[in-house]
């Protein structure tokens, strides 16, 4: 440990003391941070999200019975990501795209030296041959059921990227078709924007839920939310696969 280390330790301890003061719920510090677990949900705006009705009075929702609430997905996290704050999600996948493009720009495009000297063993090859379609199917299942169960586009896209990572681990000459990846990404992004613009045209605000909502809790429900989540899944899967492919073949 040199002098710089002790100085950093001192600074970090001072900063930690200040942050702990800010989170102390017994002091009235004007930050409205309650004690752990004592949050009153009605003091936060998200109580409207819980009632799935921001514009009108709150209603009661019953699983498998209620028809046409404002955002018809049974998973509240999905209805926030893909409906109430879908503009944030659009910005987020833009950030993801910029990071992937920056990685490809920095690493360059010489697809010559592979990361691995030889193929994996026979057992791994056979295992990947069985596991790859199963993992791909699991990813698609997670994406499609994003509005009913935990999961959705981000998780399913990451599962699909993991399946492609397994292919890279098994075969040293495995290459992804980068043109196809680009087409998939562009298709997903443009369709997201077009769905938002259709909402702007029909109901007067960007990314409105303009399709019929259906009964809450069934597979064909929640209007545009499953479509948006499928597009997010395609985009996230393509971009994470592209990142992995660029890192391996750099």
């Amino acid at each position: 440990m040199r002098f710089r280390d002790y100085l950093s330790l001192f600074l970090v301890i001072i900063l930690g003391f200040i942050i702990f003061q800010a989170f102390d719920g017994t002091i009235d510090n004007g930050l409205n941070i309650k004690q752990f677990g004592e949050v009153n949900l009605s003091e936060r705006t998200s109580i409207h999200y819980i009632n799935k009705d921001v514009n009108n009075e709150s209603t009661q929702i019953i699983y498998n019975e209620s028809k046409n609430p404002e955002s018809g997905s049974a998973n509240y996290v999905t209805s926030i990501i893909a409906n109430y704050r879908a503009l944030d999600t659009l910005g987020e996948i833009t950030v993801l795209f910029i990071a992937a493009a920056g990685l490809a720009f920095v690493l360059g495009d010489h697809n010559k030296n592979n990361a691995f000297a030889s193929d994996a063993s026979f057992i791994v090859k056979i295992g990947v041959k069985i596991l790859f379609p199963l993992l791909f199917l699991l990813g698609i299942y997670i994406i499609i059921h994003g509005h009913l169960t935990p999961g959705g586009g981000f998780q399913g896209g990451a599962v699909i990227a993991t399946a492609i990572l397994l292919k890279f681990l098994a075969y040293k000459d495995y290459k992804l078709n980068h043109t196809g990846l680009t087409i998939l990404e562009s298709f997903a992004g443009i369709s997201f924007l077009i769905i938002g613009l259709i909402g702007l045209y029909t109901d007067g605000s960007f990314l409105t839920n303009f399709l019929a909502n259906g009964t809450i809790g069934t597979l064909f429900s929640a209007g545009v939310i499953p479509i948006i989540y499928i597009l997010i899944g395609i985009k996230v899967g393509a971009e994470l696969s592209g990142i992995i492919s660029n890192l391996i073949n750099a």
Partner: peptide, 17 residues
């Protein structure tokens, strides 16, 4: 369970190899 049966032996085989 099917995933565990498929992945666990392959992983340990790769580590040993």
């Amino acid at each position: 369970a099917i995933f565990i049966v498929l992945t666990n032996p392959i992983g340990s085989h790769s580590i040993a190899r």
